[in-house]
Structures are given as C-alpha cells and as structure tokens.
Design a protein around this nucleic acid. Structure first.
Length: 1064
RNA sequence: GCUCGAGUGGUGGAAUUGGUAGACACGUUGGACUUAAAAUCCAAUGGCCAUUGUGGCCGUGCGGGUUCAAGUCCCGCCUCGAGUACCA
C-alpha cells in the first residue's frame, strides 16, 4: 500500500481540529476531562502576520516547540501550547496609506493566510486560546496595564512598584523628604504642609514625575519619513529598522516607561533564567551597569555645580579639563562673553550633524572652550571647561572630568587642543598610560592616593569625596527609559485624556477598551498631529451619553480648543506593548473581567519553554521582563521572570541563484557591442563556470582586488581587459559570439567591463543548478534578447541551437543569503507540503542541523527524510501485497533480556535484536529531546528503521512503541499507523515508551587496539574480562606482535569497556 | 574597537565526562530491475600511496603545549558570522 501522505495529513488535521485534540485542560475544568498531569507551558513567539506569508524559515521554531509539546503530552503533562498574532504594526499601516485599505482588513486577510499555512504543518496548537494584539478584546488589557503603570510608583526602599495612592498618603504625612523613589531627579523637596497647600494641578504634576509611565519632554529619535518616533532598538546603524530611513534627534512630549527603575533587577534576574548566554550578554550590555562615582565640580565665579560620572575616580588628580556635551543645559549659562560666538557656532554645527554623520566619523576631534573654569574638589586648581561632541548628553550627567592620561578620548582631545596632560601613573610613559591595565597601575602625583593601586584608590577617593561633600560612589546604567508614544494609527490607543489643565487622566476602567476610531486617511493631520487627529468623532459616541461623564470632563477632539482641555491622547502605543504580557493572557484568553484569573495564572505560573528569534534580545524580551516584574510587584502574577528556559532558533538562510551578465566594452576599433543590425549585444549572460574561470584568470590584475564587491552590488567598473585568445573556453565564446554577429573575429579585440550578478528566482533552477532560460526570460523581459553562454562555452538559442548548444546547460552561481522576497530565494512551505508532505518538511527542518544554528536551505536534500518516511511506512506494510501487517505473537528473544538469548542465532530473524534496536532508539531520542538536539534524533530514527527493516521486524511489540516515538516529529504518519494498529484514540496522549536498560546489556565489546594513540585494529573481548587479562590477551595477539615487530612495549593502557593503548 | 558565537569530506552535519574522527543524509560513481523513465534496491565514496590480499602515511582553520591518548583541554594567532558602538 502506498504512503499517501496527502490523504493521511488531510485526514488527521481534520481529526485534530474536530476533536480539539490539543486543547489544554483548564485548572477549573470538569473532572470528566480526566485528571490533568503537571502543567507544561510551551510558547512560540507569535508572528506579525505579514502579507508575504510564511517561508520555510519561519516554521523552524514552531516545529521544534511542537515536537517538545507533543513529547510532553506523551509524558503525561497537561501542555499549554498556544498561538496568536502580533497584529498591530507598520506594514499594514503603510499599505493603508498607499491604498486606503483599512489595516484591520489587511491584517484579517494576512492572518487567514497564515492560519492556512500553519494548519498544513500539523502543529498541535490550542487554537481555542488564540490572541490578536489588535483585537479590542485583547488590547483592552494592554490599556489596562498602562493604567496600572500610571497608577504606580517605584519605591526604592522596598525595591518594588507600589500603588500611587500609598505615595499620596506619605506626602500627606511627611512630604517627600523621606521618600526614595525611582523618578525624575529634579523633583524638589517638600513637606507635608507644602503638599497640602499645593493646588490639585501642582499635585498632579508632581505625581506625574513619580509614575512608572509618565509624560516628559524627551529627546527622541524622530524619523521624518515614517512620521514617528522610534525606540533605540528600532534603529539600526542610525537609520530606521523598517525601511532604512534617516533618524534625527528631536525634543517632544512623549509617554515614557520607567524601565530604568528595574535596571538592576533586570540584570540580576538573568542569573536565574536558562536563556542563551549571547542573549543574556546582549541584555546585560544594553542595561550597561557601571560602577564608579559622581563627583561635583564647582564652577568658579558662579553658583553652578556640575556633577560628572566617572568609573575612574582614582584618577581625579589627573584631571586637566572638563568636557560637557554641547547639549548640556548649563553650557549657555557658563560661557563667557568672549567665547560666546565660538561656542554657539560649535553647538549649531553639531546640532546640524545627524546621528549618522556623528557615528560615521568618530575620529575627527572637535570642541570649543567655554571660557569658564571649574574648581578641582581637592587641589582647588582651575580646570578649563570645554564642550565636545564626544560627550553624550544622554549618558551619565552629560559631562565628564577629563583625564587625558587615563582615557584615550580625553588624551586625543587634549593633544588636539594643546591642553596639559599630567601623568599620575608611576613608571608609565605618558603615551601609554591610557592603554595600561588598571589593575597593575600605581597612582602617583595624587596627594593622599600616592602609592595606592586601582581598587584601594577608588575606595579611598570616594571616602574623601563624601567627607568634603563633593561626591559619592554611584552605579550608573546605560539603559534609558523607554519612549512609549508612537505617532501612528495602527496601534493601541492610550486610555488617556487631558483635563482642562492639560493634566493627563486615565479613562475609567469600565470604558475600556478605548477602540481605535475610524479615520479618512492614515497620515498625520495638516497641523502635524498624529493620524488619530483625523478622527472627527471619537470614542465618546461609542459609549453614548454615558461616555460623556467620564471623570466629569467633556472632551471634544475636533474642536481647536481640544488641546486645552478634554482632548484625547492622539498617540498610539509602540509595537512591543501588545507582546509584553501576551504569554500570560494565553492562560485565560477569554476572560472579560480581568486580564487573567488568579486561578489560571497560579496554575500555569510561567512559560517552561519559550522558542523564538534572537533579534528580540533588547526589544520584546527586555520589555516583557520589565512588565512581568511590574505585574509581580503589584501581586498579579506569581513569578517575576516569565520564561524559565528560552531557545533562539537559528535562521534558515536561502540559497540565491545568480545569472552573470557580462558587460562588453566597445573597444578594438569597431562597434563590438552591437551586431550587424545595430542591436545592442551588451546583454550577454555567462554561466557560473565562465565567471569562475574569468575570476581566476584575472586574479592577479591590480583592479581585481575589489572585483567581488562591484559584482555583488550590481555595479560595474570601467576598466577594460583584453582576453587572451589562448584560453579555450573564452575562445569558444568568442567564436560563437562572432558567428552570431557575423563579424570578423581576427580583427577585433574582445574587451570586458565587468560582470553584474543578477538574482534569478530559485524556482527556475533545478537541483543541479541548471537554469530554465526560457522561464527566466519570461520573468525578466529585459533579458528577452539576451545571449546565454552555456557551461561548455556554446551559445543558447532555442530556435537553432549551435553545435554543442543543445547538450549544453546554463549553470547559475549560488550564494547563501538571508531568505527574502527581494533576493528571489524564498522557498514556500506550501509547495514542499504538496510535494513531500508536512511530515517530511518537519523532519527535514529538524534534520538540517542544530536548532540554534543558522543553516542554508536546500530543497534537494528533502528526498532523504521523505524516503525514510516511505521506509517507515513499508515496515508496517510487510504483507504479501504490501498491506498493513503487524504480528501479534510476542517476540521470544528479548523478553527475558538475557544477553545470550538475545544474541542467539537460534532465534533467527533478529527477533531479539529488534528489542535492542528499539530501546537504543528510545534512549537516544529521549536524550536528544532533553538536549533539544532534534537533528540527531531524526538520524536515530533512520538508523532504527534501517535496522528493523534489515531484521524484517513485523512485531507489534516493536512497531507500536515506534509509532509513539516518531509521533512528535511526524505526527500524521504516526496517527495513521497507530490507527491501523487498532487504536481508536489519537496517538497524541499515548504514554511514551519506557526505556529498559536490560535490552542493551552486552556481553562483549569490540575493543579498539591502538599503538601510540593510533587505532590499528579491533578485538572482541568479553566485557567482564579484567584489566590484566585484557593486557595479556592483547599482547599475545598476533596482530599486536606484528605491530610491535619485536619491540617491547613501554607501557600498556587498558581502560576496560573503552580502549587499549600500547605505547612502544 | 569591544562582547559573544563558529571554523570537521564535494554539501548539510555526527562524535555523552579527552578514548575507533566523518554517524545519518544529500550529491557523485558503478550496478540490478525496466522497452524506457520514475520509483526501489545493492555497492563504492576524506586525501595520498601501495595492492595478490592483509596494508601504510596524512588528515577536524594555523602555530605551539599538556596527555598513554586531543575535533574535544591550555597558550598564541588567522578567518568568518552575530550583536554593540565616542557609555566617561
């Protein structure tokens, strides 16, 4: 009987859907559903449903998690394995701007397509728990969390987030003098009576500075092309991650998230989660903790004090100047009249430079002297104050104490502007002090620090600074608060309005969700408001009359006065808002009363296994940890880290195909580039072989150095090279070309400019890299008249092939690149499923290599796993006419597990051996799953089936457990075989076969016998043979004597059960 | 520059705590079956040398080292990939 994977897969996918086979059992479900085992939560990062659909790279992580989830079900766990969509986002909005189609419609269409594709792969998702971030029923709770953050402050004394009302009562009792909070640093101190005297507006303004989400004028990354602000992690190399548009810095009033309050806990939490080290490193790096001191410098002839942060307070006696960021707020106030012009010019110049320019030339040293002087806290010396753009406004205090002998940048700056460079390091030349290992230096010329090493000097100087009130030890973080406002349409609206005083107020919870309004166009308004400003009548109509009494404030967004009072927040939330708690919502996705019930969250607790891409290291994966800690502090979730283990699946790269277009120069006295009727002959495509040959031929030409670069970038160079006639291949091409152009070959010089490598769609190329030229020409009409030079140098001509042209083929070049539509190397999983089936695709994606590694896709290789499945099928269909057959009579040999019996030839047919094969496989597969080494378990299955086939095993005692073993990997075929074995229920919950050591017990071992560490032959010896006896037997062996050739071995190493090594 | 990965046949990749390098596949070559193709099956397949067989030498990016024994451990380099970037 044929392995009809199409029919089988369809059948079981329908079965699973109909029977809700993978529905997780809720903690409160009725007892007849059976006693759930321990919970296990397997999570995938939910996808953004893009219009392009899935390519074979996308399901890799889903397949791995699905295998794990299915394995855990076999092991008796109550598995939660949900899926959903991160469906707010830019592409749908960009599409709406271009076409006017509502993003909700685009999103719906894309989700449908995704779902169809996912369903074909046989995943065991519990679809009854699907969430979509753009669904109001879902984003209601995103808005709810926002309100909770607004209503919370961070108490540094208890080290957690607390309700803002607690803070109000503290203020009423004792003011803010005793409060240690994570908040804006410049909140002035006030007493309880001060507080009581404040107006409601003032109180609100003060509280806003304490809230975990707050409004602030922040310098933001503004992307003019996208019309929105971007978070730091949404910028790559100074341009926007999406679209690659330039980004400038701009001050705007924005909502911010006080993630910095959690900096230390986010760092500490990394220690207790099993996440990949590179990812932890990336987060630790992003948080960027550094220890040092804050030192205050008095400005001479003024009241100002400028604090600086330094990690090297021990070098304080090496300070010879001070540098402020050009944007530093005190710059204009301290600059002397004489320096004013220069300083202003410098500030103007730096402001003009974009972030990108600044990054592009790090080496150019620029700066200006302010004319002002600071006073050294110990020596009281005058220290000139400079500004320079190497000091960043956003880090530390935006000012540094410059120690040219200790820091290369300070050194370069000092050298450039001829500022003195005092040396405070003993015995090191001033040109090398900046590179010196700090642990090995001794401080000198430094008053009370003389003779101290690095760490004791740091301690000492902090003590002294504290004594004179000029500084203190301090920990600084690179992490910035996260800007939370986006000037977009397709995102969660803020549940916020502004009262008549312009103070932000939260909507009452009962009015949630605040739904996105309809707009005519998705662009900013004419007055520069975000797209939501286009909404003529907003939400209060949705609530009818009732909406009008929200906190007794009427708001009317369309009135020009709207800004002054009653206006709704027009920004929307960023992409990461919806993904920061979705994993908890899956626990109770239908709940309309709460984000999730306490019963559900206490049952499911946290994610046991989370699989997704490493690109979210400093975005989603950091923000979601932040929100989880917040939710934990407020008592809504039981764990402050939501994912115990995380695995980053590697990328599946595509194998692009290239056609090499040869550019021919018209040198040589004649118009070679044209044929006799004047057609341009520049369009010549050469095969990979020629291109390679050309490359190697001209390897030594000086212009060849960057040959590869213009080639890949589709550029070309103007150099002309004369091809040597003596080269056979080239000569053949020449003659063929000239035949075509009817020109005299003798008189012409054949010149080249260069190549352009052109992507061909991989679907036009077969497994042997041969191009379907006609299909290619049809696909890219500009190549309709192109001349294709084949592998053998002949010219392709579909009408009248020249000699040799008929047999010749055009081979493309291959290169591994990211799988992407623009590179025409995308392989669609639907096509693979159609041709080989989902089980083959699942096995093959796992078989490609280790899960976490990036690896190239090659469709040709899938035949290996596909024929494995056919062999597996055949193993169960060993009847005379290939019908299903599984023998019911028990195997004798293995039952007792007695080794002699097992290996006894008298049992015949390898019946005992079958148990050995099976249990070997069980053992290895369980180990592999535990290590997430899915590629090796696919190999193990192949070995198993190969062995059982050779043994002609037909026994149910073997075939039944084998079907379960395979089921996590290839669930459809496993279900079919399981059914044929006579089971009425799905294989999904069948207990995983138990490994029994007794079947693997061996009585002897093939010992490798090595001489000086090199294996020479093997010798079968009983395993219970002692060390001495082994040595004796081996030495007595004829092959040993042959190897030794009469010499006496110096030493014999015997490791029983392992190896024998003879040293001679 | 800094941080983290990774370098093994023609290709993807195997190799528990150092113990028979190249499992399992793809590809290639040869063969069987077939009118033919597909499918299937069998054999060979790291390189070099020898061959009548048994065999020998070299091989895990490079150079050292530790060890009876190194892909695996240590030291020093090289190359590629990812992240990050004037972070004081």
């Amino acid at each position: 009987m044929k392995y009809d994977f199409r029919k089988i897969e369809q059948k079981w996918q329908a079965y699973w859907a109909k029977n809700q086979t993978f529905k997780a059992i809720s903690p409160n479900s009725s007892p007849e559903k059976g006693r759930p085992g321990p919970k296990y939560y397997v999570l995938d990062m939910f996808p953004y449903p893009s219009g392009a659909g899935l390519h074979v790279g996308h399901p890799l992580g889903y397949i791995a998690s699905d295998i794990y989830a299915r394995y855990k079900r076999h092991k008796g766990f109550n598995v939660l394995h949900p899926m959903g969509y991160d469906s707010f986002g830019l592409p749908a909005e960009q599409y709406a701007i271009q076409t006017g189609q509502h993003p909700a419609i685009t999103t719906e269409t894309n989700i449908k397509k995704y779902r169809e594709q996912l369903d074909k792969l046989g995943f065991s998702f519990d679809w009854s728990r699907e969430v979509r971030t753009s669904d109001p029923k879902y984003y209601k709770w995103t808005q709810w969390i926002f309100i909770q953050l607004f209503n919370s402050w961070y108490n540094k004394t208890s080290n957690k987030a607390e309700d803002i009302s607690d803070l109000v009562s503290i203020f009423e009792k004792e003011g803010n003098t005793g409060v240690l909070a994570a908040c804006d640093e410049d909140v002035p101190q006030f007493s309880a009576s001060d507080w009581k005297s404040y107006s409601p507006k003032k109180k609100q303004e003060i509280l806003l500075q304490y809230r975990l989400t707050y409004l602030a004028d922040t310098e933001v990354n503004w992307c003019p092309a996208l019309g929105t602000v971007l978070a730091n992690d949404e910028i790559v190399n100074g341009v926007s991650e999406r679209g690659g548009h330039p980004v400038i810095r701009k001050k705007m009033t924005q909502w911010s998230m006080r993630i910095t309050a959690y900096a230390q806990r986010l760092l500490d939490g990394l220690a207790k989660i099993d996440w990949p080290q590179p990812l932890k490193d990336a987060q630790a790096n992003w948080i960027g903790r550094s220890e040092g001191a804050e030192v205050e410098f008095r400005i001479q002839n003024s009241e100002f004090r400028i604090p600086v942060f330094t990690t090297r307070p021990d070098t304080i006696f090496g300070v010879s100047f001070m540098t402020l960021a050009p944007e530093h707020e005190l710059v204009t106030q301290i600059t002397t009249p004489e320096q004013k012009e220069e300083v202003q010019a410098y500030i103007a110049a730096t402001a003009k430079r974009s972030e990108r320019d600044r990054m592009a030339d790090v080496k150019t040293i620029t700066g200006a002297f302010t004319g002002a002087y600071a006073e050294h806290p110990f020596t009281k010396d005058s220290i000139p104050i400079w500004i320079g753009d190497y000091v960043l406004a956003g880090y530390g205090t935006g000012a540094v104490m410059s120690v040219p002998c200790g820091d290369q940048r300070d050194y370069d700056f000092a050298t450039h502007f001829s500022i003195p460079i005092p040396n405070i390091f003993e015995g090191i030349d001033i040109s090398e002090t900046a590179f010196a290992d700090k642990e090995k230096t001794i401080i000198t010329n430094s008053d009370f620090l003389d003779g101290l090493g690095y760490s004791s000097a740091v301690q000492k100087v902090i003590q002294e600074l504290e004594k004179i009130g000029a500084g203190k030890g301090k920990v600084n973080y690179r992490l910035r608060d996260a800007v939370f406002s986006r000037q977009r349409y397709w995102g969660e609206p803020f549940p916020v309005y502004y009262d008549v005083d312009g103070i932000p107020q939260m909507l009452d919870e009962k009015f949630l969700p605040l739904k996105l309004p309809e707009v005519d166009k998705y662009l900013p308004t004419e007055t520069g408001e975000p797209p939501l400003g286009n909404a003529k009548e907003w939400h209060w109509l949705q609530y009818g009359v009732e909406g009008k009494v929200v906190s007794e404030v009427e708001f009317n967004n369309s009135s020009p006065e709207g800004k002054q009072g009653g206006a709704l927040e027009l920004n929307t939330m960023p992409g990461w808002a919806g993904s920061s708690q979705y994993f908890n919502r899956y626990m109770d996705p239908g709940n309309t009363e709460a984000i999730f019930s306490q019963e559900a969250v206490n049952y499911w607790q946290d994610v046991d296994l989370y699989i997704g891409g490493s690109e979210h290291a400093t975005g989603h994966l950091l923000y979601s940890r932040f929100w989880q800690k917040f939710m934990f502090d407020r008592g809504w979730v039981p764990k402050d880290e939501y994912a115990k283990k995380l695995i980053n699946q590697g990328m599946i790269t595509g194998t692009s195909a290239f056609v090499y277009r040869l550019l021919i120069s018209s040198s040589g006295g004649r118009d070679f580039g044209k044929n006799e009727v004047g057609e341009n002959l520049d369009n010549v495509c050469v095969s990979y072989n020629f291109y390679e040959e050309f490359k190697s031929l001209y390897k030594n030409y000086s212009w060849n150095e960057d040959f590869e670069i213009p080639l890949r970038r589709e550029g070309f160079r103007n150099d002309t090279v004369n091809l040597p006639i003596e080269n056979g291949l080239i000569q053949k091409i020449r003659s063929n070309l000239f035949e075509l152009t009817s020109q005299n070959t003798e008189e012409l010089t054949f010149g080249l400019k260069s190549f352009i490598a052109v992507h061909s769609d991989v679907s036009f190329v077969n497994a042997s890299d041969e191009l379907d030229i006609e299909a290619f020409k049809e696909w890219r009409p500009e190549y309709k008249d192109a001349i294709f030079i084949l592998e053998d140098g002949s010219v392709y001509d579909e009408d009248s092939p020249l000699e040799g042209g008929e047999s010749g083929v055009y081979k493309v070049g291959r290169e591994v690149e990211k799988m992407s539509k623009s590179k025409y190397n995308v392989v669609n999983p639907d096509a693979i499923c159609e041709e080989y089936g989902a089980d083959s695709l699942r096995l093959y994606e796992m078989f490609l290599g280790p899960l976490e590694q990036s690896k190239p896709w090659n469709t040709a290789g899938i035949s290996g796993v596909h024929s494995f499945l056919k062999k597996l099928w055949k193993l169960y269909h060993s009847g005379p006419n290939g019908e299903f057959h599984a023998s019911d009579s028990p195997l004798e040999g293995g039952k007792g597990g007695v080794p002699e019996e097992t290996n006894s030839p008298s049992l015949g047919g390898g019946r005992g051996e079958a148990f050995k094969t099976l249990h070997k496989t069980i053992k290895k597969v369980e180990e592999d799953i535990a290590n997430f080494s899915f590629n090796t378990s696919v190999s193990t299955f192949m070995i198993c089936v190969n062995e059982l086939s050779a043994q002609k095993c037909t026994n149910r005692e073997i075939l039944e457990p084998l079907a379960i073993l395979v089921s996590p990997y290839a669930p459809h075929i496993a279900e079919e075989l399981w059914e044929k074995l006579g089971h009425a229920e799905s294989v999904a919950y069948a207990p995983f076969p138990a490994f029994e050591e007794k079947y693997l017990v061996e009585s002897s071992k093939e010992y490798p016998i090595s001489f000086n560490g090199k294996m020479r032959f093997t010798l079968e010896l009983p395993l219970d043979m002692g060390k001495d006896e082994i040595e004796k037997t081996v030495l007595a062996h004829e092959r040993t004597q042959q190897q030794l050739q009469g010499r006496t071995p110096k030493k014999v190493i015997v490791v029983p059960g392992k190896i024998v090594n003879i040293v001679g």
